[in-house]
């Protein structure tokens, strides 16, 4: 499986519980890969450890078990090769919009001249439609604009892997829709490898090539990998008319409502340990016959 650009193997996070010797396992045996240029979303209920997985990928958190290998090298500690867009934007409020980006660009390419840095930063600000507000402080921008700055900052550093932690979670539906379209546009241009957390099933289908589904925590795991077989370029308005859209959507919703619970926790542990190091079952509800039960598609990808 080393053919994947990013390879996550046997990842687990456990917290020592106060007093007791039994550690709390948030998730374990997480195995999946991300290909170069692929847009992967991960969905799961709160508490299943999605954010922890993302933080481990970013190098901000440490796994209790398992490794993350990117480009043949083990991930340890944060790096400019892995850009992060945080849910709460994480802009430095004492810096202007432009300086929030030049700061990152400067860190990425320390040898660049001042003009080069500004020019490069402005290019990405324009890409997210923020030309003209570059001198404003983040507090003078709306939530949507702030998240655009954050996205521009991440894309401007051109990381090999972009990690997004529920980037649109705090935005209203209209703004979210607009920024999703912008994100698609930028992604089409750059073919940036993206790993994104979301709670929004429609958002996941619109944006991703593949959707990873996690069972409920504790002892959560990555149970399925759902192919989104809808051709690109996609747009919010057209995608819902594609025949595969509702098949995929129903599959995801069914997983989140019913199966994420059934598959979760210690009840499944024995069964689970048998397929320990394999990747999650690959499912393609979009191209499947409508009547076929889901279980037919389950197969080990390893």
């Amino acid at each position: 499986m080393s053919s994947h650009f990013v390879e996550v193997q046997g990842l687990a996070k456990r917290y020592p519980s106060p007093g007791g010797a039994q550690a709390l396992t948030v998730f374990e045996n997480a195995n999946f890969g991300i290909n170069k240029g692929e847009f992967v979303c991960i969905i799961g209920h709160s508490g299943c450890g999605k954010s922890t997985i993302l933080n481990i990928l970013a190098g901000l958190d440490e796994a209790s078990d398992g490794v993350v290998i990117m480009n043949g090298k083990e991930v340890s500690g944060p790096s400019l090769e892995r850009g992060v867009v945080f849910q709460n934007y994480s802009l430095l409020p004492w810096r202007s919009t432009l300086k929030n980006i030049t700061f990152a660009v400067q860190a990425r390419w320390p040898g660049w001249s001042r003009d080069q840095v500004v020019e490069h930063s402005m290019k990405f600000l324009e890409l997210v439609g923020l030309k003209g507000v570059e001198q404003r402080k983040p507090s003078q921008l709306s939530g949507g604009m702030r998240q655009r700055v954050s996205i521009a900052r991440a894309f401007a550093t051109q990381p090999q892997l972009l990690l997004m932690d529920e980037p649109f979670g705090a935005l209203d539906a209209l703004t979210r829709g607009m920024i999703q379209e912008e994100l698609i546009k930028i992604w089409e241009e750059t073919h940036q490898t993206v790993f994104m957390i979301t709670h929004d099933v429609d958002e996941a289908i619109l944006l991703s090539d593949r959707i990873l589904l996690m069972t409920n925590g504790p002892q959560a795991r990555v149970a399925e990998s759902v192919q989104v077989s809808i051709p690109r370029p996609r747009s919010r308005t057209d995608i819902i008319h594609h025949p595969a859209y509702y098949k995929i959507r129903n599959h995801l919703v069914d997983f989140l409502v019913n199966r994420s619970k059934e598959l979760s926790g210690s009840a499944q542990r024995q069964d689970f340990s048998a397929v320990d190091s394999t990747h999650p079952a690959v499912v393609d509800p979009g191209t499947a016959a409508e009547t076929a039960p889901t279980i037919t598609y389950r197969q080990a990808a390893g």
Binding site: S79, L80, F86, L92
Partner: peptide, 8 residues
Amino acid sequence: NVARTHEL
């Protein structure tokens, strides 16, 4: 975290 991810 912003500082860390930018390798400052």
